[in-house]
Design a protein around this nucleic acid. Structure first.
Length: 731
DNA sequence: GTGAGGCCCCTTTTT
DNA sequence: GGGGCCTCAC
């Protein structure tokens, strides 16, 4: 076994070879975090401190788990089987399947993804006659998940007023509905697994004595419940090795709690905090820009990245007149880089929000540059695939009401809203599932429902004993989905995806997916595995890689969030405008600006050799033109590190431009379409005012000297000024 | 019961 | 500008 310890720097080596104790590793961007994590595991095994079965390593994404597994496999002489390596949800799922009885779940319980959960919540609210304007389904979904992530069941949530009481009642009803239907949402996987360990001493002791070493990746992204789960699992004897970077915490909005890092230090009495500060990715100027920016955050554990690779090029800055101009610049510049011999796949265009990609895509498409957009719908989330999966879920468990409602009338088979309302009433009255309540309805509607029940029944019968792929093929064929989509104008892709689903089932390795689940007879963790359930679980927990364009030389487009963990030779960080980045809605939130700054930090540290920052004076967003002020983040990067490709702020007196300036959406031009309308001024023009400083005209009315213009002065506010009175000057 | 057109809203995202 | 959802007309 070759660990190549000689290639590690002193801090990395210290982390890898740390004696038997808890540790917190503050691993800066590009500091070799994954390498340290995997080498640590290999070192523990090699030194005989632990056997593979005593190791549990947990990550956030399937991708990170796969990466870790691949590196370990390459490093170890033996297969890493026996170790528990996976995502929080994957590991909790595994535990719940093994101990489903103790956890109070059916062995083949189904997992609701976010969309399934929302559908289930809507159904609940409608059934309970809840006013959806007062209790929006999305808000309720958020409420349930937030409580679960705090580890609270309905009975434990403090109630202060009537509204809160209603929330809690609905929370209880939602959980009861899930329980009745034998389904669990994502947060439930964690909470149920946590409760299982908490309430069952035998199991807790079993796992506490099994896992000697627990390693946690991206620790800054853990939420409170995940942290408590780790604490419980570690018990008093396991050692926890937590790796994270508080400066890269960008998921507070979905419950991540950076505070877990400090809490971990305290709760576990961590003796050793190791900082990995040498960056192996970026050139000096890029790193200095990142460091200078993040230094503006107050709440930091403190860390300063350095590099031995030299300062490299300056950070290039570009100002466009419009988003279209900015996109044109991106096209020209990436083409120029390509001519110099760089691969498009080594360049990335990053943006704050997905809506920004459209203009860029349009320009790239026009120029014939092949590109790949990350994010968006993934394979198992596509409507047609989810429909097919719903039929499969019903074949496995006919009481799955979410799946039932999804396809009972898709393709259309004459079962309308009225019929379903009646059926739901009947089911509620009996406390039974929809499927089990079909007999309650007679007449024509009852007949159509009975036919559907027969279809599901025959799917179940006829797939008994078949291989997984045959099962999927049979169910897809009988569902009528293929005929339905064939008849649609643009249905070809969907038909294609349905056959792709059969292929995915054939390629699905049941053995691998369930490795270690079916252990020896009498083993406490043993669990019989049904391939269909394994496949459906895989579909829910791993929505599928973004397909298409993998491996070809395509320019990479993605949000800053999805760029985390990746690196590129050249990075274009676009749309650096107040209101967009930092986003106006974040600026309002507590600690929101700091998270935006960390986001910018993550973006900047993705670049190896070359970094571009760009912004535009005007941008079309949500169908309206907005006139923007450059991002305050420009003020936070020392001038000496940058090189402006356009005149610095194009004549704007940057110093006077305030750092808080929510972007203004300009109303439709009120008879003010001509460029020189209001006393020589035009919308979008930069102006200065003696008292308010620099600003930009966002609206106007009237003509000549009677005209009034609305000016966005950023922090000084937005003012209407009479052109004839206010001494406005063109900037 | 079904499909077409109107209306609303609009960060970030993994499991 | 555009996608999802709802209402309305057949």
């Amino acid at each position: 076994m070759s660990l190549h310890l000689e290639h590690l720097n002193p801090e990395q080596l210290a982390a890898v070879t740390l004696p038997d104790q808890h540790a917190l590793i503050l691993a800066g961007a590009g500091s070799g975090k994954t390498r340290v994590l995997t080498t640590r595991i290999a070192w523990l095994l090699k030194s005989g401190a632990v056997s593979p079965a005593g190791v549990l390593a947990v990550t956030f994404t399937n991708k990170a788990a796969r990466e870790m597994l691949a590196r370990l496999t390459a490093m170890l002489p033996v297969s890493p089987r026996g170790m528990w390596i996976g995502t929080f949800h994957g590991l909790c799922n595994r535990m719940l399947r093994a101990h489903h009885r103790e956890a109070g779940l059916p062995q083949s319980f189904q997992i609701l993804d976010t969309a399934d959960q929302l559908a289930a919540v809507k159904r609940l609210l409608r059934g309970a006659n809840v006013d959806e304007d007062r209790f929006p389904p999305k808000d309720m979904q958020y409420f349930f998940n937030a409580r679960k992530e705090e580890g609270l069941r309905a009975g434990e949530v403090p109630v202060s007023d009537a509204i809160a009481r209603r929330h809690v009642e609905l929370y209880a009803a939602y959980d009861a509905q899930c329980q009745r239907e034998g389904v669990a949402d994502f947060a439930e996987l964690l909470l149920r697994s946590y409760e299982l360990l908490r309430n069952n001493e035998v199991l807790r002791e079993h796992y506490a004595s099994r896992f000697r070493h627990i390693l946690v990746d991206e620790f800054q992204d853990t939420n409170r419940l995940q942290y408590r789960w780790i604490r419980l699992l570690a018990g008093t004897s396991a050692r926890v090795f937590a790796v994270g970077d508080d400066d890269q915490s960008i998921y507070a909005f979905r419950g991540a709690n950076v505070g877990n890092m400090a809490e971990f230090e305290r709760d576990f009495g961590v003796q050793k905090v190791i900082r990995l500060e040498q960056n192996y990715r970026s050139h000096g100027n890029i790193l200095d820009a990142a460091n200078a920016l993040i230094a503006h955050n107050r709440n930091r554990l403190g860390k300063n990245l350095w590099t031995a690779t030299g300062e490299g090029e300056r950070v290039r800055v570009y100002e466009g007149e419009s988003d279209v101009e900015e996109a044109r610049f991106l096209v020209e510049e990436t083409q120029a880089l390509a001519r110099e011999g760089r691969r498009y796949a080594d360049m990335a265009i990053l943006y704050r929000s997905n809506a920004q990609s459209r203009v860029i895509e349009h320009a790239l498409f026009g120029a014939g540059i092949s590109y790949r957009v990350y994010g968006g719908l993934r394979f198992f989330e596509r409507a047609e695939v989810k429909h097919a999966l719903a039929y499969l879920r019903l074949a496995a468990n006919a009481d799955d009401d979410t799946a039932f409602l999804r396809v009972v009338n898709f393709p259309a088979r004459g079962i309308g809203a009225r019929t379903l309302e009646n059926l739901q009433d009947a089911a509620r009255a009996r406390g039974a599932s929809l499927h089990a309540s079909i007999d309650a309805l007679g007449g024509k509607a009852g007949g159509a429902l009975a036919a559907f029940r027969a279809l599901i029944g025959s799917m179940r019968e006829q797939t008994r004993g078949l291989q997984l792929a045959e099962t999927v093929e049979h169910v897809v064929a009988r569902s009528g989905l293929v005929e339905h989509y064939r008849a649609e104008r643009d249905g070809a892709d969907r038909v294609e995806n349905l056959s792709e689903l059969v292929t995915a089932a054939a390629a699905f390795d049941v053995e691998e997916a369930t490795a270690g689940l079916e252990t020896g007879q009498g083993d406490v963790e043993a669990v019989p595995v049904d391939p269909l359930t394994a496949f459906l679980t895989h579909a829910a927990l791993e929505a599928g890689e973004h397909q298409a364009g993998e491996g070809q030389d395509a320019l990479q487009l993605m949000t800053v969030h999805s760029a985390k963990g990746l690196e590129f030779d050249a990075v274009f960080l676009t749309g650096l405008e107040e209101g967009l980045f930092p986003h106006e809605q974040s600026v309002m939130e507590r600690d929101g600006l700091e998270e935006e700054r960390r986001l910018a930090y993550v973006a900047i540290t993705r670049a190896r050799h070359r970094l571009y920052l760009s912004f535009a004076q005007t941008r079309m967003l949500h169908g309206q033109t907005r006139y923007n002020v450059p991002s305050r983040f420009f003020d936070e990067i020392p001038e000496g590190l940058t090189k402006w490709l356009t005149p610095r702020f194009a004549g704007r007196r940057r110093a006077a431009v305030p750092s808080f300036a929510p972007a203004q959406a300009a109303p439709k031009l009120k008879g003010f379409g001509r460029p020189e309308g209001a006393g020589g001024f035009r919308i979008g023009q930069n102006v200065t005012h003696n008292k308010f400083g620099a600003g930009v005209i966002v609206d106007a009315e009237g003509h000549g000297n009677d005209a009034r213009v609305q000016v966005n002065f950023g922090r000084q506010g937005v003012k209407w000024l009479a052109v004839g009175v206010a001494k406005l000057q063109a900037a």
